[in-house]
Amino acid sequence: MGSRYTFGGDEHIFVEVDEAMSLEAFFVSLSMTNAVREANIKGVTEICPANASFQIKFDPDVIHPNDMMAELKRLEETAESAEPVLDTRIIEIPVYYQDPWTHETLMRFRERHQDPNATDIEYAARINGYDSVEKFIEAHSGAPWFVSMVGFVSGLPFLYQMVDRPRQIEVPKYLRPRTDTPRLTVGYGGCFSCIYSVRGAGGYQMFGITPMPIYDPEQKVSYLQDFMVFFKPGDIVKWKPINREEYDAAVAEVQAGTFAPRIKNVRFSLDEYNADIDGTNAKLMEALHAD
């Protein structure tokens, strides 16, 4: 693949595995960052995997930038020979598509949108060749998604659709970013879906909302008591469309501390996936719904 190494000032090394997004590039990024963590290089302070790249922050008083660079390049061989297999978890995330809150927000920012006469999801459905929003929701929630990066702001996951490239949904970001996005909005930009972990500015198209908090600095949400951030790179997500009643019920469960996300441990092999995408996804769904 031929990664590109470059310094980000005197404290960072940035490695671009590939200019384009692919699961292959993501797996190289993930195995490289795992290799760096295991190597325990003195002076490393942050190890950040991203979609098709990664970044290391280090203390140049402890290790010279050139030595840090040499260490990373040495690890590339180890990482490339690593089997692209991941022990991870699959999580079902309920989504109330076309909810009133993101709808209210998107109506406020129509002048920043490519198609002011349609909603975000109507626009996304049309430019991706779907006859109806319902068909588009089926496509968005039909196959699982890989969490290929966590970041931007607190615990926000970037998700990559697990289908072959011709079926992948692509939607441009807003022409100009909004100054507001409801918390827990399920968004879309480029080839990535995301969940806005907090309220704030954003440029991704808004499709719906999940009742399930994914970031809680107070750590009051039952499943965030161990750690305030829910997602980590390598998680697999399956969207589950829900209606208003189910949404309200889930919100009440979260508040009561009884909401338990459906989570199963799974092993994912990139080679198996590439050999049979739909078959691999079917097995993931079986694992998710077992019991």
């Binding site: 960072h12 590939d18 997004m21 441009p172």
Partner: peptide, 19 residues
Amino acid sequence: PFGAGADPSNITDACYPYG
């Protein structure tokens, strides 16, 4: 590149160094 977005200033979403 695939995944980067249409504007020439866009890249496939990546990490940002401080500074």
